[in-house]
Design a binder for these strands. Sequence first.
DNA 1: ATAATAGGTGAACGAGCGTTCACCCGTCAA
DNA 2: TTGACGGGTGAACGCTCGTTCACCTATTAT
Lengths: 187, 187
Amino acid sequence: MQREVAAIYKFYRRHKRMPTYREIAALMGFASKNAAYKLVQKLVREGVLQKDKEGRLVPNRLRAEVILAGVVEAGIPSEAEVAALERLSLDETLIEGNNVTYALRVKGDSMEGAGILEGDLVLVECAEDAPVGAIVVACIDGEWTLKYLREGRGGRYLAAANPRYPDLYPSESLRIGGIVRAVVRTY
Amino acid sequence: MQREVAAIYKFYRRHKRMPTYREIAALMGFASKNAAYKLVQKLVREGVLQKDKEGRLVPNRLRAEVILAGVVEAGIPSEAEVAALERLSLDETLIEGNNVTYALRVKGDSMEGAGILEGDLVLVECAEDAPVGAIVVACIDGEWTLKYLREGRGGRYLAAANPRYPDLYPSESLRIGGIVRAVVRTY
DNA sequence: ATAATAGGTGAACGAGCGTTCACCCGTCAA
DNA sequence: TTGACGGGTGAACGCTCGTTCACCTATTAT
């Protein structure tokens, strides 16, 4: 039972799609794809697999996504509570824009005040413009940096979140490369 | 051109499968799925998309995931550089442990010094024990909280990363619920 | 002006899809 | 002994898939 599910997810990982019933039958050694159909029905009934409304097999979110368990003060949920909780795909949540998203490793402590530390990964959506106040990856006078985008009398400039760093006013050019959409830190 | 590819991969991320030609047509606003077919053919010819030998559209795994583009100082890579860069699936990277991983929303500013702000999402791997020094979700005298796990003469205690908060020594019990493996913040 | 081309529509085709039906055969309970 | 049942086979059904064909514009090159 568990072996069957593992085989299906192995197929999914290798092919980046769920198998057809014919392929499941081959995976399990069945001669008839109907045997695979009945097996899948059983697994769906048990909640191990899922189908979308068109009947296509969909990878179970439990295996692919994070369980959103409320706030810290609520603590770790019991196994019984987990069923009712929302799921969250990080890939989906963090890369939602239509533009290309890059991950950049942060160097230095200039954005420490905004909770962005050295070594963090920032997810940057490519954009040539950004709203004032956003955290941007920008090229100022030929050098790339990660800062707040601010606007003053003299036009736009870059500001660190760390008071030990001065504001940066462009002497020649200020080109925005992208907007920071998310910060990810792993331990 | 880049917009179309992005839309297709956005569909892939949301549905965990590639779209059919009919769905691509809907995505692009075409009335005929043949327009989608021709578009895909062009993209395949350019190597932006791939098909397997059965003619199914296959995600160019290089695009379904985040492009790891080096450090901030290197800036946004040009389209030519992108081909050589590493890719990264956030779901896979952030949920690597064998135990169940939960996402918890952070309340309060007690871990501000560690770059964990109010509203951030912490990914917590369930565990009943944790190494000293780790950031843990723990239940101290019946209350759940997010702190550093420390050890002193009197045994283990919890410490905030914000100096305005006192260390917490358990008067009765200190139960560890999980270890913080990652922090995610979206803007 | 004319031809060629890129990019769209709409209809059609065979193949493969998910699904259903009828049937077979061990196992187990009544 | 009998009958229900779980798990398998094989054939069949519509629907949707990828693919092809004929045709219709605009735009561009000759």
